[in-house]
Simulated scan of single mutants.
Amino acid sequence: MSPTRDRPLALTMGDPAGIGLDISLAAWINRRAWQTPPFVFIGDPAALQQRADVLGHDIVIRETDCAKAVATFKDALPVLPLACASPVKPGVPVAANADAITGAIETAVRLTMEGSASAIVTNPIAKSVLYDAGFKFPGHTEFLADLGERLTGEELLPVMMLAGPKLMAVPVTIHIPLKDVPAQLTSGLIYRTCTITVRDLKNRFGLASPRVAVAGLNPHAGENGALGLEDDAIIRPVIERLKAEGVDITGPLPADTMFHDRARATYDVAICMYHDQALIPAKALGFDDSVNVTLGLPFIRTSPDHGTAFSLAGKGIARADSLLAALRMAQKLAGNAARGKN
């Protein structure tokens, strides 16, 4: 089977009180004009229909499975049903629906791992809402890694990448307070993050020899120790090791000069030391069309790079650009991965 023609993408509903339903509907309604890759929506069909009614969309929703989703997609929005426990109201998240939110993610992982779906695209979740229901993971990324470990029995390191038309950026540390970054930042973690990134850029993005630029932790990359010792003690040895292994890599570089046009032309991916160091330039350069890609997993996962935007839900003003980009990238990565196995 072709991963892009015969199997759908598995699209999770995210928090149903957010804009995930709005943009999922938009992606299907404009499927011909936008050439939206076929997907199966995993979530509550009643909530989806209700949101369509609120937005004034005349739409056909059809409950189905992955095997029939691609054919169904032409004339109806295919839904693999997973009911919410509590009625859904746009902009009003409730912890009672946490099981349905996480259940959609678990179902998408299972379907993709068994080969029924080609890749996963996740709509945004609100972690604070899930925490109220006992969710124990810092975020989507860590939850997906735990699901992958449970299914494979292998220890996984999930690597977040923001991929846009002007920049691909990876944070080594993700959802932790800034004050904890220096203690969590080890040479081993940097090395694993870089090797996973290079591997997936080769196998899934089709880059034969990825060019990697590594940011320093401190201002001016430590300025020879005057502004901090981590850059020379922790980061630089990793870069020298990877160079010896044949990786095209430079750094540690001052982050304040890494992201202008001329600098970006010299590398394919920027490895950054903490969350905002990567995500601020990535979103500044491509807020509407950047995609969150999780590397290091046994399946392909992409997501819009924005949140639930509860204040926009049900108002007809949410933009679907980033979701469309995530769907297209998931389709592309699935195709690249399949060709690499042939």
Rank of each mutant, 00 (worst) to 15 (best):
M1A: 14
R5H: 10
A10Q: 06
G14T: 10
D15K: 14
A17I: 00
A17F: 00
A17V: 00
I19E: 04
S24I: 03
A26V: 06
N30H: 15
V40T: 05
V40Y: 02
V40A: 10
I42Q: 02
A46H: 09
A47F: 02
Q50T: 05
V60W: 03
R62V: 12
E63W: 01
K74S: 12
L80D: 11
L80Y: 12
L80M: 14
L82I: 09
A83K: 13
P87D: 01
P87N: 00
K89W: 02
G91I: 01
P93N: 04
P93K: 01
A96Q: 15
A98T: 02
T102D: 01
E106M: 11
I120W: 02
N123R: 02
Y131G: 03
D132W: 00
F135I: 07
P138K: 13
H140N: 12
T141C: 08
E142F: 09
F143T: 05
L147G: 09
R150C: 07
L151C: 09
M161F: 00
M161C: 12
L162N: 04
G164M: 04
G164L: 01
M168I: 14
A169M: 09
I176T: 13
P177Q: 08
P177V: 08
D180W: 06
V181H: 08
A183D: 13
L185N: 08
G188S: 13
G188K: 10
G188P: 01
L189E: 08
C194W: 03
I196D: 05
R199G: 01
R199A: 13
D200R: 11
F205S: 01
S209R: 15
S209Y: 08
L217D: 07
H220E: 11
E223V: 03
G225W: 04
L227M: 13
G228Y: 04
G228M: 06
L229H: 14
E230Q: 12
A233T: 15
A233R: 14
I234K: 13
I239P: 02
K243Q: 15
A244S: 14
E245M: 14
T250Q: 14
L253A: 11
T257H: 03
A265D: 15
A270W: 04
M273N: 07
A278G: 05
A282H: 09
A282E: 03
K283P: 10
K283S: 10
L285N: 09
F299V: 09
S303R: 12
A309T: 04
L312C: 09
G314Q: 12
G316D: 12
I317V: 15
R319V: 12
A320L: 05
M329Y: 07
A337P: 00
K341C: 11
